[in-house]
Each structure stands twice: as structure tokens, then as C-alpha cells.
Design a protein around this nucleic acid. Structure first.
Length: 907
RNA sequence: GGGCGGUUAGCUCAGUUGGUUAGAGCACUACCUUGACAUGGUAGGGGUCACAGGUUCGAAUCCUGUACCGCCCACCA
């Protein structure tokens, strides 16, 4: 005899979650099955690499959604028997982390420069050791079934090696170069940024119109009104670095300026007028000041015309010595002062307000400065071409499909990637310089030294490039570096390429596209085949959720209040597109966990002395009672629907189907239907229904498990304890098989139809009761009438159920509605329900009620008849649609007939 | 400036190749503390599917245009 099991009246989420996660992780349930097998052939594999959260990160709703989705997929595939691996890890997040540690130092009145590079990096590692595991601890609380034994960090030894290997390989293939170009410079972080890291934002700026005197026309002061031109600029301070003014060669207004020189105001330098097609005669005055060192267009023009590049800003955004009197001023102060000075000299024309997009540092939101400097770049075109080819060959598929275009457009217009950063935290660039300025690109310092020795014929002192690589230079290797690359490891052979990638749209360019390029370049194969781009989590207001805006909902708070399962389920239910969150939205999940818990509790209460529960049904469904057959049929149907939905990343649909199955089918109907059997009935019937109840509940836990791992495990383990075949149960629900085993269950259309009749009858009775204000406690007599003999027979066969659910004292079944005078009725397609209301029936009222129904129904029937008599419809519509419509019409006509007959009884 | 999404019940949203009388959750109304669950049950009210055209036997669904909202991309100073 199995021990009696009960569930506590209330589900204790915190305790349950802590208990099971510990068990799962410590017993290695999340490790791939093939780890404990010999050989590498383990059948189907399912592999996901986590989008590594920043080491500075704390779990926010975006992470919660992203990782819930991945966990659902991974747990689902694991239960389906795949050799499953979810690789976790954390990103060192170069600039972000350096900023965090610098801020911490600032509180102690220290700067990284004071500490020096080596000590500063020690501080960062110390910070990482203390705080770096916050996010992974939080992922565990979410329930993420990652294989933590394979956790990686982008700065760990293996990944650092991968980074150097990638850099050197690309250099050797001619895909990495160093050069002086205009890049995005963040004056606060004092580093270069890639184009993707400069986020364009609209800024209400101004277009300043400034006079540039023409040279050789007397002194500027005298001739100012006749002999000058006007340029328009949004950044007047850059004029300090002007080396020309450009006009469009086709612009007839300025033909007289050909070959002339202008005097640069304030500095007095003479600059030429040049002609360039870039200039748009329609914009501003049609004259553009050219500042090759501070604007990418001007840089290009400067290159075309051989202009000097004068850099007037320092790395801190302050004017340098080239700015003459403005030296030392901040760029924005200089702007003000320059305008004032121009005004004082009569050289300022006007200021038009002007809205334009300006790049901002994606880490600190400082306005980015286009800045000329020497940086390392990756030549992207050849890499992008491979990715585009892979796409054309169908090797990468985006879900939903619309992201494909976003991806390919970016690849088609790709520009070279600036990968050097002037910060300290990150992978130092594997390039060493000698004193003559020669450099050696090498995997190790020893290798560089050896080559320098070869070149010089003696030992030379080398200095490593002080810059580090863009954080994303390690992230783009993630799908194979985490598996051991560049070593030919077993994991790499077993698990590359991975299966799916799940992420948010924000990082398609930063990360997804680059991973695909890196995978093709270094592994010769795409890193994953399917890419699921899920919605962005936003606050109810539509703004991005962020702590700084104060509109964030902390997932850990929600977990604390309602449990991780509730959080996960709510998020996934809402995730059909972008998720707009407010606190109340989590009630769906919370209420659902409560419902599940109570349904299970009820089942167990009724099985306390039951010893035949088993994971295998061991009964022929055809021999069972209708309700049992029906729920098993629904279970089969729902399982395949969930499979189908998950297969296409329709997470919210899968969750919705399951929700309605558990709540409506299982709780509202099945449990209510079987209550009479569980409480009364013969021992045999009771035992059979209990077995079905046990079996169904156990399968429901399996279906729930990917979505709600904790509560499902808790209930499942309780079921396991009392199962007669528990010896054959796996240790954990995580390792149980996804329903169903072949041939175990099937859809039973006959049962579904028959139960539909019961539902009609019961709903009919309830409906009448409610519309006539009859209290539920008052038992009623009912007559069920049907012209369909089979329907009547079926209804009679399930009299007990109708009686209980409809709260009837007695029920009769007949085919002749005429005997139902003095009864109140409702008609449905197959069955008509009448109830007797002693001494209450008012013939006039009933006439009115029926007339209303008749009128409504007649209208619909007329339109349907019209539709069906339309030759075009019959000709063009699919046969099954026509048949369905005909059937509907026939049903409606039957119902109408019943109403009319019934009405006559009251005439 | 370019591209992409959205507009369906008071609110938040589903609606899978065009085909029942357009659905759910929340909110609302009425009734119900019925031995799983009031984080619950039963019944109900509420929508000319943004607007204007078009294709079609048939349009929330396909096409064109308009309006508003949102997102992404963008070196016109």
C-alpha cells in the first residue's frame, strides 16, 4: 500500500522552488544525456547558447522573458528525449563594467589612472568575484535549466584564447587592418565606439549661419557686407578645424568663387573653396564648411581634395592647442563662446532651430563626437557576403520571418567594424610594437618576440597595443568558443552547430548577425539554424523598462510574491508580441498556479486510499466512461497542439492552449463530471475513474513542466510517491517523457461529440435557471427532449452527470416536446432542455421570451438560406465549408421548429 | 529621409494560409461561501474589427491610399 499523500492547503512557492532547483542542479539533471554515455552518437540533439547577460547585470524582465522562453524550449526538448544542452555564461561587458568599477572607485576618491592599469584590473576582477554571480544566481531562481558545469565567462582563459585566435586568423586573412579614420568617440568613456554603439537620437539643435569673408578683398572688417559667403552648420565649434568650404559644382550661384580663398573667422587662416558633388545646393546656404577631422563626410571630401586634417579636440572633448584662443574649453562651452565672438565681429547671421539625429554613447548616453583617430577595424564585406549566401541557401531562418529583411539589409549595407577600445577592461589587442613602429600580430607575446628577433636579428623590447577589443568581439565567437574552440574538443564536435537562438531584436546587429558571420568564417558553418526573435518588454506606458526611468518591475520581487512559475507563465502568455507590463498582469500566472494546486489537491484528497495510480493507463480507453474517454481525447489533442505551437516558437499560443485545457476542460468540466463517480458509484467504476484522473493529472504535470517547472515537479513527485509503478518513474519530472508514448492515447471524436451533448444540456439548464432567477439550491425537475434518438439515448445514459451538474431532482427523456406544456425550455442543436417551475410559469412572459428567440433565429436562417442558395458560393467555396454551413442551417432550423412548437403550447 | 510593426469589447491583447452568429484575460452586472480553489463558480452585458476605396460568391484577414501610435535604421552640413 502506497503511503497516503496530501498537499498543503496553500502552495508554498518559495520553499518549493528552492528545494527543487537545488535537487535538479546538484544531481546533474541539466547536463546533456550523452555526458554519461560512451561514444558521441546520442541521437537527436538540442543545443542553445544563452545570450550572455552582462556581468554587471541584475535580472530584469527582458532577461526573465528571454530565459523563460529558452527554458521552455530546452525542457520540452529534454523531455522529448533529445540530448539537450543549454550553455550558460556571462559577458565581461567592457565599457559597462569598467564604468561600474570606476564609479565605485570615485566614491573612494580614486581614479583608475591613479591606480594604474594593473591595479585597476585587479579591482575589476575583485568586483567580478564579489558581484559577478548575481545574475546567474537569479537565473537559477527563474528555474533556468542550464548546464552550469559548462558555464563560461568571456574573459576566462579559454575564451581569451579564442579571441586571440580569431583576431590573428582574421589578420592573416587580410580581414583586420589598422587605420586613421573618423570613428564615433565618447568623450566621457574616452574610447572609440562602433557604429552600432552610437545610438542615434533626435536632438533639438540649431543651424548656425556664419559669414566667411572672401580673402584678398580688403580687410574683413571693411568689406564684410559685400565680400563674404555664408555657411550653415550645426556644430560651429568645429570651424576651428575647417580647411575648406565646399559648393556643388553645378551651383551657378557660386561660380564666381572658383579658385578664391576664404578667411576662416576667429583664426584668420586662409582656406580654399572647393567643388564637390556631395554638397546639396538645397540645404542651408548650399555652402558647406569642411572639417576633415571632425565629420565623416568632410573626411571623405578632404581625402578627395587632399585637404589637411586639423584635429581641434582632445579625447576629453575639450578644444586642443589647434583651437587657438579656445584651447582648453569644453566643446559645448567653446560653441557658445565662438557664437558670441562671431556676433561681436558681425560675422554671425542667424540661428535656425533644427531637429537632427545625433549619436549617443550606448553605455553612458553622452553625445558622441565624430573623431579622427587610429583604430583597428574588421573588413566586414567578405564576412557579410558569406552570411548572405548562407541566408540565400536557407541556412538561417528567422522567426517571425519579418526580421529576415532587417538582417539582410544590414548585411548588404555593412560597414567596417571598429574593434579597438581605449579602455582597460577587456581582451588586450594581440599586437606588439617595437621601438621603430613595426608591429607583430601574434597569438602570444613569445610568438611576437620571436618574430621581432627574426626581423631585427637581435632581442628587442616590445610593447603590447594598450587598447582592448570591443566586447562584442568575444561575444560573436560565443556559440563555438563556449564549446572549446579553438581546441578540437568533444563538445565542439557534439554540439556545434547549435539548434536555436532566442533573443530580443535589439541585438540582431550587435550579436546575431556577427555570430553568424563568425560561425561561417571560423567553423565553416552557421552557428544555429533557427533564430527566434521575441518581443521587447516595455512598461505599460510603452517606454522601455529601466531602473533609471523608475518604471521597472523587478522580476525577483514578483518571484518573491507569486513564485517563479507565475512570473514565467504570465510573461509567456503575454509574449505574442511586445510585452507591455504592469503589476496586475502577473495575476494570470498566480491564479493559474493556485488553480493547478487546488485541482491536484482535490484529486489527491479523493485518492488517499488509492493504490492503482500509474503513469501507464493500463486500460482500454474504449471501455471507459464517457467523461474519462473525453478527457483522454482532449489530452491527446491538446498535446499535439502544444507540440505544434512550440515547434514554431508560438510560445504564448502553447501556453494559452494548455491554460484552457487545464482550467476549462480539466477543472471546470472533467472534475465536476467525475465527482459523482468519485463519491458514489461502484467500486469498479470508481477505481477506473481514479486511474484516469491520476493518469491525466500526471500527464498534465508533464505538459506544464516546461512552462512551470517547480509546481509541476512538486505535484508530480507527490503522485510518484503513491504510484504503484513508481519504480519505473524517472527521478525527476525534468527527465520524464513528454506525452505521449505512441498509441497510448488518441482523439476520440465520438466521446467529444457525446460530451458536447452533456455540455449543451447542462448549460441549457443553468441558463434557464439564471434567466429565471432560480436559486441554485432549488432542485428542479427537467425534461430533455430530442428528435435525435441517438442524442437522447446518450443524454439518458449520462443522466447522473446532467442531474448533478444541473442540480436536478429528477429528469425525464422523451422525443415528444408536446408533453412539455407548463415547462420552460431552451433549444440547442441536438437537444432541447425543459425544466419545470412549479407555480412560477407565466404564459405571457414565456410567449414573449420565445418570440424574441424565434425572431432572432429566423433572421439568421434567412441570411444563411440566401447564402446557400447562391450558386457562386456553392461553386467556389470548398466542399467542406459548404457542408458545414448546410449542417449549421439544418441545426438552426430544428431549433427554430422546436421554439415554434413550444410557443404554440402557450397560445 | 528609409524600413518595419500596430490600430479588434471600458483596458490589455488572441484571431495560423479569406469561409460558423469575431474570441480570451482583466474590469463590469446578477446570483452563489456547493467539502479543491472567492487567487473560486455560474450566467450575462459590451465590438458597424482606425478610415476610404478595391479584389472576391464571401474580407478583421488580400491589394491601394489616408490618419494616428510605436520601433528600428540613416554621414545632408
Amino acid at each position: 500500500m502506497s503511503p497516503v499523500r496530501e498537499l498543503s492547503p496553500r502552495y508554498n512557492a518559495p520553499e518549493t522552488e528552492a528545494k527543487w532547483y537545488e535537487v535538479w542542479e546538484s544531481r546533474g539533471y541539466f547536463r546533456p544525456r550523452s555526458d554519461s554515455m560512451s561514444g558521441t552518437d546520442s541521437g537527436n540533439r538540442y543545443v542553445i547558447v544563452i545570450p550572455p547577460p552582462n556581468v554587471t547585470g541584475i535580472l530584469h524582465m527582458g532577461h526573465a522573458l528571454n530565459n523563460s522562453i529558452q527554458d521552455i524550449l530546452v525542457r520540452w526538448q529534454r523531455m522529448k528525449g533529445c540530448d539537450t544542452l543549454w550553455v550558460p555564461g556571462v559577458d565581461h561587458a567592457g565599457i559597462a563594467t569598467q564604468n561600474v568599477v570606476e564609479k565605485k572607485l570615485a566614491k573612494e576618491k580614486k581614479t583608475r589612472q591613479q591606480l594604474g592599469r594593473e591595479n585597476f584590473l585587479k579591482e575589476v576582477w575583485k568586483w567580478k568575484d564579489e558581484h559577478g554571480s548575481t545574475i546567474t544566481r537569479q537565473l537559477r531562481r527563474l528555474g533556468a535549466s542550464c548546464d552550469w558545469t559548462r558555464e563560461r565567462f568571456t574573459m576566462d582563459e579559454g575564451l581569451s584564447k579564442a579571441v586571440r585566435e580569431a583576431f590573428v586568423t582574421l589578420y592573416e586573412r587580410g580581414l583586420i587592418y589598422q587605420g586613421h579614420y573618423i570613428i564615433n568617440w565618447c568623450p566621457r568613456c574616452q574610447t572609440a565606439l562602433s557604429d552600432e554603439e552610437a545610438a542615434h537620437k533626435d536632438v533639438q539643435g540649431a543651424l548656425y549661419h556664419i559669414k566667411y569673408p572672401i580673402a584678398g578683398a580688403g580687410t574683413a572688417a571693411e568689406k564684410i557686407n559685400e565680400d563674404h559667403i555664408v555657411v550653415a552648420t550645426t556644430r560651429p565649434e568645429t570651424m576651428l578645424g575647417d580647411t575648406a568650404v565646399a559648393v556643388n559644382p553645378g551651383d551657378s550661384r557660386y561660380r564666381h568663387l572658383a579658385g578664391k580663398k576664404l578667411v576662416l573667422p576667429l583664426l584668420g587662416r586662409e582656406i580654399p573653396v572647393i567643388e564637390d558633388d556631395f554638397v546639396d545646393p538645397e540645404f542651408g546656404t548650399g555652402m558647406v564648411k569642411v572639417t576633415p577631422a571632425h565629420d565623416p563626410n568632410d573626411f571623405a571630401m578632404g581625402a578627395r581634395h587632399g585637404l589637411e586634417q586639423i584635429n581641434v579636440l582632445g579625447p576629453d572633448g575639450k578644444v586642443n592647442a589647434n583651437g587657438g584662443p579656445y584651447c582648453g574649453m569644453d566643446r559645448f562651452d567653446a560653441r557658445k563662446k565662438i557664437i558670441e565672438d562671431l556676433e561681436a565681429r558681425g560675422l554671425f547671421v542667424r540661428r535656425d532651430s533644427h531637429l537632427h539625429a545625433v549619436g549617443h554613447c550606448y553605455r553612458c548616453n553622452t553625445m558622441v563626437e565624430p573623431y579622427l583617430s587610429k583604430q583597428w577595424f574588421v573588413k566586414m564585406k567578405p564576412l557579410a557576403d558569406k552570411a548572405l549566401q548562407a541566408h540565400a541557401e536557407g541556412k538561417t531562418v528567422f522567426y517571425p520571418d519579418r526580421w529576415t529583411k532587417v538582417y539582410t539589409h544590414w548585411l548588404e549595407g555593412i560597414r567596417d567594424w571598429c574593434i579597438s577600445r581605449q579602455i582597460w577592461w577587456g581582451h588586450q589587442i594581440p599586437v606588439w610594437y617595437d621601438e621603430d613602429g613595426n608591429f607583430f600580430v601574434a597569438r602570444t607575446e613569445e610568438e611576437a618576440k620571436a618574430r621581432a628577433r627574426e626581423k631585427h636579428g637581435r632581442e628587442v623590447v616590445l610593447r603590447q597595443d594598450p587598447d582592448v577589443l570591443d566586447t562584442w568581439f568575444s561575444s560573436w565567437l560565443w556559440p563555438f568558443s563556449t564549446l572549446g574552440w579553438p581546441e578540437p574538443s568533444g563538445d565542439l564536435r557534439r554540439f556545434y552547430p547549435t539548434s536555436d537562438l532566442c533573443t530580443a531584436p535589439e541585438i540582431i546587429f550587435f550579436w546575431v548577425a556577427r555570430m553568424i558571420m563568425a560561425g561561417l568564417e571560423f567553423m565553416g558553418e552557421v552557428p544555429f539554424r533557427r533564430i527566434y526573435i521575441h518581443g521587447t518588454v516595455r512598461a505599460q506606458s510603452g517606454l522601455k523598462m529601466s531602473k533609471s526611468l523608475g518604471n521597472a518591475i523587478d522580476p525577483l520581487e514578483v518571484i518573491g510574491e507569486m513564485g517563479s512559475d507565475a512570473l514565467r507563465y504570465s510573461l509567456v502568455m503575454l509574449s505574442a508580441q511586445d510585452v507591455y507590463l504592469s503589476r496586475e498582469k502577473f495575476e494570470v500566472g498566480r491564479n493559474f498556479t493556485n488553480k493547478i494546486w487546488n485541482a491536484a489537491r482535490f484529486a489527491l484528497m479523493n485518492m488517499s486510499d488509492f493504490s492503482q495510480g500509474a503513469a501507464r493507463l493500463g486500460l482500454d480507453p474504449r471501455q471507459l466512461a464517457l467523461a474519462d474517454r473525453w478527457i483522454l481525447s482532449r489530452l491527446a489533442k491538446v498535446t499535439s497542439e502544444i507540440d505544434k505551437a512550440l515547434d514554431g516558437f508560438a510560445m504564448s499560443q502553447a501556453a494559452g492552449v494548455l491554460y484552457h485545457f487545464v482550467w476549462n476542460d480539466f477543472c471546470d468540466w472533467y472534475i465536476e463530471l467525475v465527482k459523482p463517480t468519485l463519491l458514489g458509484a461502484s467500486a469498479d467504476d470508481r477505481a477506473r475513474t481514479r486511474r484516469v484522473l491520476f493518469f491525466t493529472l500526471e500527464k498534465i504535470m508533464r505538459l506544464l513542466h516546461p512552462f512551470m517547472p517547480f509546481i509541476s515537479e512538486e505535484i508530480w513527485q507527490t503522485l510518484k510517491e503513491m504510484a504503484q509503478d513508481k519504480a519505473s518513474w524517472p527521478e525527476t519530472l525534468s527527465l520524464a517523457a513528454w506525452p505521449m508514448e505512441a498509441g497510448e492515447l488518441f482523439e476520440d471524436l465520438e466521446a467529444e461529440k457525446a460530451l458536447g451533448l452533456i455540455q449543451q444540456a447542462v448549460v441549457g439548464i443553468r441558463d434557464l435557471r439564471a434567466s429565471l432567477n432560480i436559486p441554485p439550491a432549488q432542485a428542479l425537475s427537467a425534461v430533455l427532449v430530442s428528435r435525435n434518438a441517438k442524442a437522447l439515448e446518450a443524454a439518458a445514459a449520462f443522466y447522473e452527470q446532467i442531474k448533478t451538474l444541473g442540480r436536478l431532482s429528477e429528469a425525464a427523456f422523451q422525443s415528444d416536446f408536446k408533453k412539455t406544456k407548463a415547462w420552460v425550455g431552451n433549444a440547442y442543436a441536438e437537444i432541447e432542455v425543459f425544466i419545470r417551475i412549479e407555480g412560477v410559469l407565466d404564459p405571457a412572459k414565456e410567449r414573449e421570451r420565445l418570440s424574441g428567440k424565434i425572431e432572432e433565429l429566423s433572421k439568421w436562417i434567412r441570411s444563411m438560406r440566401q447564402k446557400l442558395s447562391n450558386d457562386d458560393f456553392v461553386k467556389h467555396a470548398p466542399g467542406e465549408v459548404v457542408a458545414k454551413e448546410r449542417e449549421k442551417l439544418a441545426d438552426a432550423e430544428k431549433v427554430l421548429q422546436t421554439h415554434q412548437d413550444h410557443l404554440q403550447l402557450f397560445q
